[in-house]
Design a protein around this nucleic acid. Sequence first.
DNA 1: ACATTATAAATA
DNA 2: ATTTATAATGTG
Length: 643
Amino acid sequence: MTSAASPPKRGVTVSVVPLVPAWRVDRTFDYALPVNLRASVGVGSLVRVPFGARRTRAIVTAVAEGDASGLEEVIALVAGAPVAPGVMTEVLTWLAQRYVCPLGRAFQRAVPARVRMRVAAPTALETGRAAQHLPSYDGGDALLDALHKRTPGAWCVRTLPGVDRGTLITELVEAALAHGGQALVAVPEVRFGSAVIDSLTERWPGLARLDSAQPDNERAHAWLRVGAGAPLGAGGRSTVLAPAGELRLIVIDEEHHPSYKEDRSPRYDARKVALQRAALGRAVCVFIGPTPSVETGAAALNGAFGSVVGSRAEARALRPVVETVAPPRDRVFSRELHQRIQGALRAGERSALLVSARGYARALWCAACARSVRCPVCERGLFYDRVLTSVRCSHCRWRAPAPTSCPSCDSGALRYLGAGSERLSEQLAKAFPRARIARMDPDLIGHLDQDGPPHDVDIYVTTWIGTKPAIRPPVSLVGVLDADSLLRRPDWRAAENAYQALAAMAEWAGPASDGGRLVVQTAEPNHYSVQAVIRGDYDFFLRHELAQRAELGYPPYSELIRATSYGMRRQGLIERAAGLARAAGARVLGPIEIDTVVGPGELEEGLEILIKATDAEPVARALRGILASTPAGSRLRIDVDPR
DNA sequence: ACATTATAAATA
DNA sequence: ATTTATAATGTG
C-alpha cells in the first residue's frame, strides 16, 4: 500500500461502499486516503468516512494512486483486521446483484456487531494427521488429492447414515490446510449445539467460533480473528461471508438444510454464495450430508460437482427395517404400530412417535352441523390447546379462549379431531400404563437448555422439532404417524423434504442389525420418496424426482424468483415486475393473492408471482430498477432462490 | 407571522 | 441511515 519514493507527491484514492442500506446510495464513493492511514488501509478495510452531513462506516473496495484533490478524506480505520479481504468485495457485490439488495446492505453482512477490539496475530493450525475415513468412500481419494493440490472445484460428499460427519470434515480441513491458508465450515441450526463444531473444537481448540451460540463480543472477536488470518472458522449460515482472505476450503454441512437460506434481506442462499466464493477465489467447496438437495445431487450426477459416496452395500446394511402401514381411520396409531411399541417395551428399548401437530387436538369439530371451528382472520382450522383451554391459528397466530359451543349453530357437541402430541401422550399412557412417556414440542423446547435429551423414557412423543439430533434420545423404533401430511404439501419441494425427513428418521432408528425399525403410516406406500427410504437408495429418489422437476421446469432445470407486492399500488407493481421478467426471457406464473402474517391475527394482502428463468441473474438485474423506485406506500419483495 | 411537524432529497 | 432543506400544517 505504500508507494516507495515517488517524488511528485500524488495522492491515494480509495473507493468505498458506505454501510447505508438505501437504494439511493447503491454505488461506491471515492475518498482521499491520508498519509497516516496508507499503511493500514487496504481493500476490505472497515473505515469511517464523512458522508453527507454525518459520518458513517464504509468498506474499501479499491485503492488507487492518482489525483485525490477535491475529495473528502477517510477519517479513520475502524477495525484492526479487514472485514472483506480477498475476493469478498466481489462476492458481496455479486450477492447484492443476485439477491437484489442495495450494496450497503450486502456489505453490512461482512461486519460483526461489535468491532472495537484488539486482535492477536493468528497462530498456525496443527495438521498432518492422515485421513482415515474419507479414503473408504468412492471418490474420497480424488477429493483429498484436489485439496492437497489446491485444485479448485465443487464436491458433493454423500455420507452413510449414522456416520460422524465431524470426523470427515476434520479430515477435509487437515488436507486443505496442510500447506497453510484458511478454511471455513458452515453448519445448520447451531441453537442446540452442533456435533460437527464440537469435534472440530476438540481437534483444534483455537478455532474461531462464528456461530450465534457465542456471545456477541466473542463472535465479533472470532470474526476479526479470521480477518487477521486465523486458519479455521466455523459457524452458521453467515460463515460463508467470514473474512478469510486466503480461503482454501469452504464446507457446507447438511447442505440440504433449509436454514442455509436467509429469510431477511439480503435473502441469500449460503450454498450459492459458497459456490460463487470458491469459484472466484479458486477454493474447494464441499457440500456434505446424508441426503443432498436435488440440485446438488443432480450436479454430482452430471459431473458439474465431484462426487464422493459411501458404498451402496454399506448404505443398505445401515438401514433399519422399514414398514409402511395404512393410516387407521378411527384411531391415531395402527394396530401394527401398537404391537411394535409393545415389542419395544418388552425388549426394554425406546420408541419415538412423530406427530404432525403440537397441542391437544388438531381441530375442533361440531358434530351437530359438521363444521370445524375456523379462524376469523384467515379462515383456516384452529387447533386446541388443552392446558390453556384456548384455540390457536397455526397460520396467523391468532388466539382466543376455546368456545364451549359451536360458533355457527350454537350446539354444544364440539369434538376434538386429530391428535396433537399432547393428546397422543395421554392415549399412550392409557394403552401402556407402565411406560415412561416424554413429550417434546415447540412450546416445551425452551425448557431443555441445560438438560439435554431425555434418556429415562420408554416412549418419546414429539413433533418434527424434537427430532433434531442434538435434542433427541437414542431409540430403536421410530413411528411416523402422518407421513401423508409431508407428501401432500402443496409445495414443489414436498417430495424432496418428505424423503429427507423420512431418511433422517431411518437414521435415527438405526441399522436393522441393531434392532432398528421405522414404521411409516401412509396412504401412499408406493410414493418414490417412501420407497427410496425403504430401499435405502438415494439415487432411486433422485432419478424419480429429477424426472418430475424436468417435466414441470423446476430447479435444477430452472432458477426461481418469487416476487410479492404489498400496498395500494400492488397490482401495478406486480404487473410491472411480471412484464420485466417476461422481457428478460423468463416464464411467469401468477399473480395469485396471498396473505402474509404480520402479527398475531394480523394479515397483509399481497400479490405474488413465481418467475422461472434459465438464469436468475439477468432477471434480478431487470427487477432491480423497480425496487429502487417503488411508489410510496407500496412494497415489492423479491426473493431469488426461494426456499 | 412564526413554530412545529411531515416529506423529500442528498450523500465523494 | 441520517441529516438537512423544504413544504405543510398548526397555533397565538
